[in-house]
Amino acid sequence: MKTTPAKVNHVDTITQKLGPFLGLIILVVIVSVLNPSFLEPLNLLNLLRQVAINALIAFGMTFVILTGGIDLSVGAILALSSALMAGMIVSGMDPMLAILIGCLLGAVMGAINGLLITKGKMAPFIATLATMTIFRGLTLVYTDGNPITGLGENYLFQLFGRGYFLGIPVPAITMMVSFALFWVILHKTPFGRKTYAIGGNEKAAIISGIKVTKVKVMIYSLAGLLAALAGAILTSRLNSAQPTAGTSYELDAIAPSY
């Protein structure tokens, strides 16, 4: 009575986990046949660099979705923090400092989401849909609808989005380091356990003495921070901030997180 359902679930989880991976393999095979240059190292490295931006946002989104929430504002946070970073750089601030402040501002934007959802008791979908529009609007106001260019020739800043380290694109390294970091946080720390607990049964989590409000605000801040970090990479790659950057990135992040 108790063993069978467990076994069935096991098989389910295996197919669930391997399904997308199989899909990816099939896709790679098809594309490589259609276009043999797909598998060239240069192309693969380029792909890694491109995917880093989406992956970073997806890491944050994973935490959000695990708690049963959603964050539609990550694309807009990326754009706004990117514009703010570029603005600071243009006004003469050290680019690396600008990135740091930009990421913190991204975390603040995420915290606003978290507070609206917990203290404001808004549904995550509605709250982040609203902030998405607000952040996007602020970006357009701040940039006047034009790209911000003239970010200078700072070597470290260029390295951040365009450079290589040991032949691997720096954004790909950022992505892999972040992945390792967040995997450990999710599986080995109380914070990760609490994240799962809130998603599994929020009431039970509250009654177990977990500060659910605090954990959720931290999670949305993390999502904001990672979106801003992705924004920094994009800014460096394009050597400019685009007012419409990150449009629909939330969807690219939601899909892999599930």
Partner: peptide, 16 residues
Amino acid sequence: NEGLVLDFSIRENMAL
């Protein structure tokens, strides 16, 4: 609804 996270293992529930 309030005592257990049903998808959690016994260990994870007890540790909460």
